[in-house]
Design a binder for these strands. Structure first.
Length: 899
RNA sequence: GGGCGAUUAGCUCAGCGGUAGAGCGUCUCGUUUACACCGAGAUGGCCGGGGGUUCGAUCCCCUCAUCGCCCA
């Protein structure tokens, strides 16, 4: 076959991916005990999700690792799947219902759930198709979904077990409440946003002291209906005399105590703070410390409700009017606030209003202002589960890369709060708890089991009703590393792939997901879920801005793949993934790295044109030519570096190593130096160089397969290395140890330096490449001379040299000169160059060389250096000085020769 | 307020005790049998400021500044 002029990513990607899938090239094989296992769990994307750059980043890294390990001979499992994303999915389906004039309430739970499943089958999981476009080699037949039967069984099993172990319980406490969804949400799903608000200063009359008021400052005046105390700092002299007294609340007329509590900050506001335990997390704790009642005055939709206070409303002239308060019933938070502030103002209890910037909690999804809300929810005792999870990281069974994330993990785990696991949604794992007529709870795997428990408990048959709520999506995600492998059954997969090898994810879900997997894994599997955790950064745009829909600065990875190919995108991502750094990615970067794909393609075309084909049984040890040995040893170095880079998750170094080797070594030097060999009479050498080229091209394709799977496989097949689609299952290259490479290396490196020197002189002297120039060697060793003779053809082509010879006698007029070790390269250019330019050029070189020499001299003249530094370093400096001195001397001589 | 990270060439980033590097950009030259999605060459840096440790600091320690993230 003949390679087309350019690489066509689109058709190649489509063809190869289908072929790989057809060949089951991504399949793990738990029965194959010959190979050691290596496994990665995909962080399950949201089933409503579409591929964004964040996915492209994390999946590219994972795919690179899994492809690399597969080549290294591991039985590699990359476990695919998606999660059911309770809130997000329910939102999506409710939105489409509302466009049909329907609502979830009107259709009922069962019909709604059915509808969600229907949506999932038809439109959900589109991301799995998109991952294929990226080239992700996931073991698709093993794809899982958190709502699958198997995973649901795991969820029930875990819930029941934790309940029986008293690690799951019900509790009435404050939760973060989304008043739009009317559901509890996790602390972690709350985003605090700084907003411009106000601080309202309100006077509370002190009971029994005429004309004495205590002024509280608050950001939420509407909650004063539910105030149960005013707190002042016990150290605060201003208020000490008031502690133990009571104040009368404006509007409601209730009496509440003044308590001393360190929570009150004397520096903030007036130093006196109103306490509303049912509507503020800090106040809740103050309330508990002082055994204060909790009064809710907002309902599930964050509207004023008077249910708990209407009995106690008092009429106090000029202070409290029950009619006003009754009028607030059903008002939104915002409207109630306006009405209350206006009323306080007109009654004269509003002292002042100050502008105030403060944090307001918002729901991450939907964006509603979160309301702390007092409800009964299911909780998981995360503190108990955290212990063994922390230990696993402490004793090194789990390693974070980069390590500093361990501190973040520890800090959160050591102060972990009870985990609210119930959600007031319909889409998710319904809580396996049933209630008897008196509210007694029975937790069981299914209704029958609950019924049996109930029958026993009550001594007679009673009707049970199941808990309406579902579990937090992260509850099921926390089980992902073992539930996907078949737990609670003892499957071969579970036995073989748990614990998994590495988890690759972003730092934004360390708490949400990573920590929970470790807790659940330790508790139920009695082992860590993964050994390494590679935490990568976030994808940002070129200017370092976070990509977001609202900013409109996001880039669609699929568009990039369409325009530049998946290989280019993947290579760009790897190149930019340093340790612990965000990835700034723009279209331009991908465009730039695409040139590398093209370069590889063109190099391959050159090889093809020169009849370079895969050679069966090639033995690197038999290579005789300096060029061949040099390339093979450079290849070994690249293989070693690339492997080391991948071993330490240095994707940037891996990419860079390949880039430099292919471009800087293989293309720029080897192929160029090979041209004269191919053109020469020496058929033996030409054949050998062809074989070396073929071998190294094969090594390059192997090295790049993990990151650029498409173009490499295409070439692999084209060059006859193997069947189409077979590169993925080839072995990872190993460095070869050649004996006696020193001479060959020295020779090639010296000739490269020689060519570079001549090129530099020519370029600086502005000699056009079309003009060939002879080069004479002065003071050259026989070694250089012989080498230069042997490489005459190559030097001629690459340095545009007409002939290279030893300089007999004196320098001709008008020469340019360059220093190469002990030799001086002389380019006779009379009439072509301006002598003063050459003088300036040499003078500049000399100045630079003298500066370097001076540095070394300074160092060596420091007695302390000689006495205290490592002797090897001292010797190195002495050698360096000798070289520098010689170079300076030669440059001076060269300068002196210019008349 | 607490914690973490960053600060190196115009830009994006490596390096992290012993002559400051890459890619992109810029400038110059160029179409020599793979490649203009190209080649050759050059230009470009008080390695954020100050102090300390050391024979020697971009690198280790302290401190300040600026920016970013997380937690309150």
């Amino acid at each position: 076959m003949t390679l087309s002029k350019t690489f066509d990513p689109t058709s190649t990607e489509k063809r190869l991916y289908a072929l790989w899938e057809h060949n089951k090239a991504f399949s793990a094989n738990p029965e194959n005990t010959q190979k050691p296992p290596f496994s990665i769990m995909i962080p399950p994307p949201n089933v409503t999700g579409t591929l964004h750059m964040g996915h492209a980043l994390t999946m590219t890294l994972q795919d690179t690792l899994i492809r690399w390990k597969r080549m290294q001979g591991f039985d590699a499992l990359w476990q695919p799947g998606t999660d059911h994303a309770g809130i997000a999915t329910q939102m999506v389906v409710e939105r489409s219902l509302s466009s049909e004039g329907l609502s979830r309430q009107s259709m009922g739970r069962e019909a709604f759930t059915k509808r969600v499943w229907q949506w999932k089958e038809e439109s959900g999981g589109g991301i799995t198709k998109q991952l294929r476009r990226l080239g992700a080699s996931l073991d698709w037949p093993r794809e899982r979904f958190t709502m699958d039967e198997g995973l649901s069984r795991a969820v029930k099993e875990v819930f029941v077990a934790l309940y029986n172990q008293k690690l799951i319980y019900r509790d009435n406490r404050l939760v973060n409440w989304d008043p739009v969804f009317k559901s509890a949400i996790s602390d972690l799903e709350v985003e605090n946003k700084e907003v411009n608000g106000s601080l309202w200063y309100i006077r509370y009359p002190v009971d029994g002291l005429i004309d004495t008021t205590l002024t509280v400052a608050t950001t939420r005046p509407e909650t004063m209906l539910g105030d149960v105390a005013v707190a002042v700092n016990p150290e605060d002299e201003r208020y000490r005399h008031l502690v133990g007294k009571q104040v009368r609340l404006p509007l409601t007329g209730r009496l509440v105590p003044v308590v001393a509590d360190a929570y009150s900050d004397p520096e903030k506001g007036t130093g006196a703070v109103k306490i509303t335990p049912a509507h503020d997390f800090n106040d809740f704790e103050v309330g508990q410390r002082h055994q204060l009642p909790m009064i809710s005055v907002l309902d599930a939709e964050a509207r004023i409700t008077l249910d708990e206070i209407k009995e106690d409303l008092q009429a106090v002239a000029g202070l409290a009017d029950p009619a006003f308060v009754n009028g607030l019933n059903g008002l939104s938070r915002e409207d109630a606030r306006k009405a209350i502030v206006a009323e306080l103002d007109s009654l004269g209890y509003l002292e002042k209003i100050e502008p105030h910037r403060h944090q307001v909690p918002h729901a991450e999804r939907g964006g509603a202002v979160i309301e702390p809300f007092l409800t009964t929810q299911w909780y998981c005792d995360a503190a108990k589960l955290a212990g063994p999870a922390v230990e696993a990281v402490e004793d090194g069974r789990i390693t974070f890369i980069p390590k500093q994330w361990e501190n973040t993990f520890f800090a959160w785990m050591r102060d972990i709060q009870p985990w609210c696991i119930s959600r007031q949604l319909w889409w998710g794992h319904r809580i396996p708890a049933w209630y008897g007529p008196d509210g007694h709870v029975f937790v069981a795997h299914d209704e029958a089991e609950a019924q049996t428990q109930a029958d026993k408990h009550y001594g007679c048959a009673v009707a049970l009703t199941q808990d309406e709520d579902v579990l937090d999506t992260w509850f099921s995600s926390g089980l992902w590393p073992f539930s996907t492998l078949g737990w609670p059954d003892k499957t071969p997969e579970l036995e073989r792939y748990y614990p998994t090898s590495v988890l690759v994810t972003g730092f934004d879900i360390i708490f949400f997901w990573v920590a929970r997997m470790i807790m659940m894994g330790q508790h139920f599997m009695n082992d860590v879920p993964f050994k390494d955790i590679f935490i990568h950064g976030l994808v940002r745009d070129e200017r370092g801005q976070k990509m977001s829909k609202s900013k409109g600065n996001g880039i669609d990875p699929l568009e990039l793949i369409d325009d530049y190919g998946a290989d280019a995108l993947r290579f760009t991502i790897c190149s930019l993934t340093g340790v612990g750094r965000d990835v700034k990615l723009g279209r331009k970067k991908v465009e730039d790295y695409r040139t590398f794909v093209t370069k590889l393609w063109n190099a391959a075309r050159f090889c093809e044109m020169n009849e370079i084909r895969a050679v069966e049984g090639f033995k690197p040890e038999t290579v005789q030519s300096a060029l061949g040995i040099w390339l093979l040893s450079e290849t070994s170095k690249a293989v070693e570096d690339a492997t080391k880079a991948l071993e330490s998750y240095r994707f940037d170094e891996y990419a860079l190593t390949c880039y430099r080797f292919v471009r800087g070594c293989f293309c720029d030097w080897f192929l160029e130096l090979a041209k004269p060999v191919f053109a020469s009479e020496n058929q033996d050498e030409a054949r050998e160089i062809r074989h070396v080229a073929a071998h190294v091209l094969g090594q390059i394709l192997r090295l790049l397969q993990p990151v650029m799977p498409f173009v490499t496989d295409d070439l692999w097949h084209a060059f006859g290395f193997g069947e189409e689609g077979s590169l993925i299952s080839q072995s990872w290259p190993e460095p070869v140890q050649l004996s006696q490479t020193d001479n060959a290396r020295a020779e090639c490196e010296q000739m490269i330096r020689l060519i570079s020197e001549i090129r530099a002189v020519r370029s600086e002297m502005n000699i056009p490449p079309s003009q060939k120039v002879p080069v004479f060697l002065k003071d050259a060793s026989t070694e250089i001379t012989e080498r230069a003779q042997r490489w005459q053809e190559a030097i001629g082509r690459l340095a545009r040299v007409s002939e290279i010879d030893i300089l007999e006698g004196e320098l001709p007029q008008g020469c340019a000169q360059a220093i190469l070790e002990e030799a001086t390269l002389v380019l006779p250019l009379e009439g072509i160059i301006d002598l003063s330019t050459e003088r300036k050029r040499l003078q500049k070189e000399l100045t630079k060389a003298e500066e370097e020499e001076a540095k070394t001299v300074k160092k060596l003249s420091n007695e302390n250096f000689i006495a205290r530094a490592n002797p090897e370093v001292v010797q190195e400096m002495k050698d360096r000085l000798a070289t520098q001195k010689e170079e300076c001397a030669r440059l001076k001589t060269a300068l002196a020769r210019i008349i």
